[in-house]
């Protein structure tokens, strides 16, 4: 379970560029939920995602994951946390262009300390699960957008995370491919019990989620 208690995040504090991205956010996302975070541009949705994913820290307030304070410890501990507990899916796929499909998936596991041979085996297994059996050794540039996003999903699930954070996972895909990606995310949520938090402007996707958290100007509005 994820809990935000009066979380504030100020970017570039005490400077002319100061932005209050989150302004006293309190929310709860149950374990194994398929949650959506929706909001217009500037609502603070990416900031919310980076704070949940331990990529950034809150200026004030408390963030708890399964009852434990999230943002405590060294940079190294935060990196370990990201490797073992969180999976990330980005809007632009964001695969490493010089690595093949299976190497992209295995990379996440290598950062978590998985032995190379085991990482390779599991990466290929995960790619097969998302229907990319024949594309293991392809570089991202040799894959379509939908295929790249499936690699990204396999990568996000590589370390058996408890939480997967997806930032506009269907934002750059056509409706057919987007539907397939949504189905894959739902399947992962149901099959592995992963808490899925999706930032989206896609109404169809948001309708399938529960809870749906609406942000406006850094505040939860519903």
């Amino acid at each position: 379970m994820i809990e935000f208690r009066d979380v504030v995040k100020v970017h570039a504090p005490k400077s002319p560029r100061e932005v209050r991205a989150l302004d006293g956010v309190s929310l709860t996302i149950p374990r194994a939920a398929f949650a959506a975070v929706v909001g217009e541009c500037g609502a603070g949705t990416p900031t919310l995602l980076t704070i949940i994913g331990a990529l950034d820290t809150a200026t004030s307030g408390t963030v708890l994951v399964d009852g434990a304070l999230l943002h405590t410890g060294s940079r190294r501990r935060m990196a370990q946390l990201r490797a073992r507990r969180f999976g990330f899916i980005f809007q632009g796929f964001d695969l490493i262009s010089s690595l093949t499909a299976w190497e992209n998936v295995a990379l996440a596991m290598r950062y978590a300390g998985t032995p190379a041979h085991e990482a390779r085996r599991r990466a290929k297994e995960l790619l097969a699960d998302v229907g990319l059996d024949g594309r293991m050794d392809h570089l991202p540039g040799q894959l379509s957008g939908g295929q790249q996003q499936r690699v990204a999903i396999a990568r996000a699930l590589a370390n058996r995370p408890t939480i997967v954070l997806a930032d506009e996972p269907t934002g750059e895909l056509d409706s057919t491919t987007a539907e397939r990606i949504i189905s894959l995310l739902q399947a992962a949520n149901e099959r592995y019990g992963v808490t899925m938090i999706v930032v989206t402007h896609n109404h169809e996707l948001a309708q399938r989620c529960d809870p749906v958290i609406r942000l406006r100007d850094g505040r939860v509005v519903g």
């Binding site: 940079r75 990201r82 490493i96 950062y111 370390n159």
Partner: peptide, 13 residues
């Protein structure tokens, strides 16, 4: 950005 992605995936400093 690639370094940012690597860090999101759990790469330590």
């Amino acid at each position: 950005r690639e370094i940012g992605i690597r860090k999101a995936l759990g790469a330590s400093d």
